Simulated scan of single mutants.
Amino acid sequence: MRIVDTHLHLIYPDRLSYPWLGNAPAINKPWSVDAYWAEAKPLGIEAALHMEVDVAEADILAETEFVLGLPGIIGAIAACRPENPDFPAQLEKLLAVGKGRVKGLRRILHEVPDDVSAPQLFADNLRLLARHGLTFDLCLRADQLHLGVALAQKAPEVTFILDHCGNPDINSIGLDPWRQSLREIAALPNVMGKVSGIVNHCDPDWTPETLRPYVEHVIDSFGWDRVVWGSDHPVVTLTGSLTSWVEAAREIVADETQENQEKLFYRNAERIYRLG
């Protein structure tokens, strides 16, 4: 089964600034595209979308341009600042740098106050994405999923992708109240679900069965036509590895039809992110 990875982070500290990595010593080092492909290709990963790595704001354009020149990177989800009045100009610059290969944008919302995404300006700026066929990835904590609901309702013409299964707190709180909040955001037809980024919410001794109820609930809530898969590499290495996560994801959906597995691992990604 071939895989399109919709959530790869690459880290090049010699070229770009990542202020947040000072608080993440376990992954505060270079993570190159060559090292990624050495592990990814034997697992069936054939292509990857680079997901912005919350670089310093001054490096957003530089990150986007740089990663699009790396082997196997078929597109980028670029960082942005929709809360700023000059967002339209930033969008135009990203589109020019990307030359058709910027497939979406993301603003990490769990690292900023909740009221950053609340003003109408934020939603109005996101609505500009629709005319360019761009998506917006939502990166929220489980207790913030209502913020994603509000944005998706304000910008119904935009396709949103909820990163990391909505970040359930597997190791502490567990399934509830995440389960109901996930249902509520999945009920919006312009929101897709990304099966990614949950391994780091577990103890290192997790198994596929630890993850199964979360993955299955996401797929059940969104349906097989509205889910994509992502590695969240290298964050996945905090409590696992790219290999263990791929193997677990395959095991969890092993009893599903070939068609549904293809939708999760590459067909939906190609459609939703317009990779054809």
Rank of each mutant, 00 (worst) to 15 (best):
V215T: 05
R226G: 00
G223A: 06
S221M: 09
A40P: 03
S117E: 13
E157P: 11
T237Q: 10
D137G: 09
Y273H: 03
A254T: 06
K41R: 12
V158T: 03
V33R: 12
F222E: 07
H7C: 04
G230Q: 05
I74P: 00
L188D: 10
R131G: 08
V67P: 04
G44T: 03
S221Y: 05
T210A: 14
A56S: 04
Q258L: 15
V195E: 07
S221G: 05
V236I: 13
Y273Q: 00
V227D: 10
L121C: 06
V102Q: 12
N190Q: 06
P25V: 01
R106V: 15
A58V: 14
L121M: 10
T159H: 12
N167K: 13
R179D: 03
I161C: 15
C165E: 07
R15M: 06
L68E: 02
V195D: 06
Q120R: 12
R267D: 01
A254Q: 12
V112I: 15
L43M: 05
Y12C: 13
D232C: 01
S172T: 09
R127A: 11
P19Q: 11
K99P: 06
D5C: 04
P42Y: 04
D54C: 01
V158R: 07
M192E: 06
K194T: 03
G148C: 07
V149P: 11
L140E: 02
P30C: 00
G44E: 01
C202L: 01
P177I: 01
E111W: 14
P204G: 10
L147T: 10
A48D: 02
R81T: 14
P88G: 12
E111P: 11
N167C: 13
S17W: 03
D255T: 08
C165D: 07
A47P: 05
Y266R: 03
F66V: 05
V236P: 03
W224E: 12
K103Q: 14
E247C: 08
W245R: 02
G75E: 14
D163M: 12
T239C: 11
N84E: 14
M51K: 07
H9W: 05
E83L: 14
G166L: 09
G230R: 02
V199L: 06
I108A: 15
A62T: 13
N200R: 10
E157C: 11
L10G: 08
